[in-house]
Amino acid sequence: MQQNHLSRWYFGGVSSSVAACLTHPLDLIKVHLQTQQEVKVRIIGMVVNVVRRKGYLALYSGLSASLFRQMTYSLSRFAIYETVRDEMNRKNKGFMPFYQKVLMGAFGGFAGGFIGTPADLVNVRMQNDVKLPVELRRNYVHVLDGLFRVWKEEGIRKLFSGASMASSRGALVSVGQLSCYEQSKQLVLAAGYLTDNILTHFLASVFVGGCATILCQPLDVVKTRLMNSKLEYGVRCVSLSAKLGPKAFYKGLVPAAIRLIPHTVFTFIFLEQLRQHFGLRVFVSP
Score class of each variant (00 low, 15 high):
V150Y: 01
R138I: 03
E154H: 13
W151I: 03
D129L: 09
Y140D: 00
L144E: 11
D129A: 10
L144H: 10
Q127N: 11
R137Y: 12
N139S: 10
E154K: 13
H142T: 08
S161L: 11
K152Y: 07
L147Y: 06
M126A: 06
K158F: 01
D129I: 06
R137T: 12
R125V: 02
G146C: 10
G146R: 01
F160M: 11
V134G: 02
V130M: 05
G146A: 12
L136T: 00
W151V: 02
Q127E: 14
K152Q: 14
E153G: 03
I156P: 09
L132T: 00
E154F: 11
G146M: 03
P133G: 04
V143S: 08
V143H: 05
S161K: 10
M126C: 07
W151D: 06
V124N: 05
S161M: 13
N139P: 05
R149V: 04
N128E: 15
K158V: 04
M126W: 01
L147R: 03
L136C: 02
V141W: 14
V141S: 12
N128Y: 12
V141N: 12
L147A: 07
K131E: 13
D145M: 02
R157C: 09
L144P: 01
M126V: 04
D145I: 01
L132V: 04
P133I: 12
D129T: 06
S161R: 09
V141F: 15
G155F: 00
R138F: 07
K152M: 09
